[in-house]
């Protein structure tokens, strides 16, 4: 009964505060517009064409080919690269929007002491936390998955023709798009779980949001400098992009293990939040019949 009511409460908050619609629509619409912009950029300012097709820059392919990086430049702007670049950009947008917009659900309630009356009425921490962990991270995962899927489908159709003189390094198919969308969306899922864990455990949603974003950025840099490119959630964008480009360099096992580690970390964040809130449950009084 409490769990059902907690779910209803979170859904009411999410929908009536308008945050559900912002998190659902802003990343998807922004990335649709950005994908269309890149697709038509060649017609508008010639950016894509210039880069993909060196001849448009007034340089012959032979002449440009003398440069060592020519192949790399061509690859970077191939269909698959457009898809992965835009998806990573969209994922960052989803993460920032979700983590900051969901501060109201990840600790602000404690800060405003709105939990006092429900708690003294008997609301259990496990039900309070469970509703939050089941609704928000999963919703963000679905939004990011849909957004990536849409970018993929658009990329397949809009970046399907190589401009004259350009070589498309790799094309993408529906299976690759689904795999990419399903895995890269685990990153926002993990970061939302982390910010909820910090926010709910400390009662400070702002600290939860900022430390999650900064922590993810810094940790990723540290791991990369250590030469570690997999087995942690922040590795997903590069890991899965590398797998799509060249599945020889990254094995599917690396991806599977990274997925398992990420999901385990999300469950840990959930359990830590429950543990922290339960450890704060106090009982100062003794029940004694009328004295």
């Amino acid at each position: 009964m409490q769990l059902k009511a907690s779910f209803k409460k979170e859904l009411l908050y999410f929908s009536r505060s308008g945050k559900l619609y912002v998190i659902l629509l802003v990343p998807i619409l922004t990335m649709i517009l950005l994908t269309m912009f890149y697709s038509y950029a060649d017609d508008i300012v010639g950016v894509t064409g210039m880069t993909i097709n060196p001849e448009k820059m007034g340089i012959s392919t032979e002449e440009f080919g003398e440069y060592e990086d020519f192949d790399l430049i061509k690859e970077t702007f191939s269909q698959g690269s457009m898809f992965t670049t835009l998806s990573i950009l969209g994922t960052i947008l989803t993460i920032v929007l979700s983590v900051f917009l969901l501060m109201g659900a990840s600790g602000k309630e404690q800060k405003e002491k709105a939990h006092i009356i429900p708690n003294s009425a008997g609301l259990k921490s496990v039900n309070y936390v469970s509703a939050k962990f089941f609704i928000y991270p999963i919703f963000v995962y679905i939004v990011n998955f849909l957004m990536t899927l849409i970018i993929g489908i658009m990329s397949m159709n809009l970046f399907d023709k190589a401009p004259e003189g350009a070589v498309i390094a790799f094309n993408i198919d529906m299976g690759q798009i689904l795999l990419y969308a399903a895995t890269i969306s685990l990153l926002p899922l993990f970061l939302v779980c982390t910010s909820f864990c910090i926010g709910l455990s400390s009662g400070k949603a702002g600290i939860g949001a900022i430390s999650t974003i900064l922590g993810a950025y810094l940790l990723n840099n540290v791991f990369v400098k250590m030469g570690l490119y997999s087995y942690y959630p922040m590795a997903f964008p590069n890991l899965i992009s590398s797998y799509l480009m060249d599945n020889q360099s990254v094995s599917i096992y690396e991806i599977v293990i990274t997925i398992i580690i990420t999901l385990v970390l999300c469950v840990l964040a959930y359990l830590i939040s429950i543990f922290f809130l339960q450890s704060r449950e106090i009982r100062n009084y003794e029940d004694i019949p009328e004295f």
């Binding site: 002491k113 006092i116 009084y285 003794e286 019949p289």
Partner: peptide, 25 residues
């Protein structure tokens, strides 16, 4: 020490609390 009890109840004493500035949803 805080003792709470009624003549017919030992457990499940229910306490209602209204804070000074109640923050409701």
């Amino acid at each position: 020490t805080i003792k709470i009890g009624t003549d017919n109840k030992v457990n499940d004493i229910k306490i209602g609390y209204l804070p000074e500035s109640p923050s409701l949803y």
